[in-house]
Design a protein around this nucleic acid. Sequence first.
DNA 1: GTCTATATAGAGATAGAC
DNA 2: GTCTATCTCTATATAGAC
Lengths: 201, 201
Amino acid sequence: MRKAKAAETRAALLEAARRLFAERGFLNTKITDIAAAAGRSAGSFYEHFADREELLGALLAEMEDSADREVARAGHPREHDLTDRDQLREHLRIAWSVFREHRAVMVALFQSRVGAGPGDGRAWDDLTSETAVFRHHLEYLRERGHRLPGDPELVAAAMGAMLGMLGYSMLTRAEPVGDDTVVDTLTDLLLYGLAGPAGTP
Amino acid sequence: MRKAKAAETRAALLEAARRLFAERGFLNTKITDIAAAAGRSAGSFYEHFADREELLGALLAEMEDSADREVARAGHPREHDLTDRDQLREHLRIAWSVFREHRAVMVALFQSRVGAGPGDGRAWDDLTSETAVFRHHLEYLRERGHRLPGDPELVAAAMGAMLGMLGYSMLTRAEPVGDDTVVDTLTDLLLYGLAGPAGTP
DNA sequence: GTCTATATAGAGATAGAC
DNA sequence: GTCTATCTCTATATAGAC
C-alpha cells in the first residue's frame, strides 16, 4: 500500500517537526533537520510539503480542530457575559490549555509571524481576527448598556496580546508553572483590574 | 581627523539600521543592506560592530538613555500608587510614547528575542526584568495591605505582555492610531477591569 | 515515494590593497 | 578606516536512479 506508507511519512514529518519546534523553535529548525529527525531524506520532505510554512499550516489546522472541539464541548453563544467571573475564567482557561497542549505550534506560529516583520501590519490583523470571539462578547455587553474601558476591538486585542505574549513567555520556560494560578490571576486582573472589586482595601 | 570620520560612519550605520529595522524588521535586514543604505561597504561595517546583535545593542542603549531621561523628568519613587488613575496612566503613557519614538528598536528587539527561540526561557527573564518597575510598585501596594489579583511578578509580567505585544501590533500598522485613546483604554482596563468601577451598570 | 547527489543562492565574515 | 574581492558555510530546492 503506497498510500499508507506515504501517510506514514507525512505523519512522521509532522511529528518530528512538532518536537523540534517545541525544542528549538520554528526559525532555528531547518527542513533537513525535520527530515532527519523523522528518519527520512530531505528530498522526501518536498513530496509532502512545498515548504516549511506549509507544514506549519498543517500543524495549525490540527490545533484549530482540537481547539474547536474543546470550545464546542462547553458551548459558546455570543451571549456570554464576560463580566461574570466563571464565564470569563472559562474562556481564559481554555485559551491557556490550548496553548499548553499545542505549545510547539504556538511557538512556531508566534515566531513565524513576528519573523515576517512589520511591513504590512499583519500582526494587528492576526491579533484582531484571533480575538474576534472576545470582541463579539464585548459588543454584546455594550449593547446591553454595559460601559466598557474602550472600543471592543481594542479591548479584545489587549486581552489577546496579554494572553499570547504571557503564554509564549511562560510556556517556554524550563520550570513548569501552576496553570490554575495563572488563570486565576488573569481572571481577576481582567475582571476587576488592579483596584480590585468594590470594597477592596 | 580620522576619529571624526569614523564616528560619522558609525552614526551613518546606526541611522541606516534604524530606518531599515523600522521598514522591514531586524531579521530581514542583512548586514550588507545596512552598509549599502549607509553608503558604506560591508567590510567597513565590521570595523564598528562585531555583528548585527552588537549594533542592536548600541541602538538599545540609546533608547534606554532616552527613556530614562523621560522617566526622570517626572520622578519615579517606589511609592507610586498604581491604583491612582493619574499615576497609572502616566506610567502607561510613558511606555507607549517610548515605543512610538523608538519603534525601530522596539521592533528589532522584539524580533531578535522571539527569533532566538524558546530554548532557555529567555522570553520570561526579559519580560520580568523589564517589568520590574511595575513589580516594585505592586509590592509596595501589597505591603500597604492592598489586595492584588495575584503575585506581583506575575501581574507585572501580564501588564508588560499586554503593553509589549499590543505596542508591536499597533505600531507596525500602516494607519496611525490615536495614542491617547489607547492609553486611556489600557488605563481603565488595568485599573477597573471589564467590570468597570464600582457602580457601573 | 524515497533516496543520493548536486545545483543554486544567500549571507556572514576576512584578506589585502589603498 | 575603507574599499574590493573572495572564501566559506548553510540551507533551499531539484534531478535522476531505484
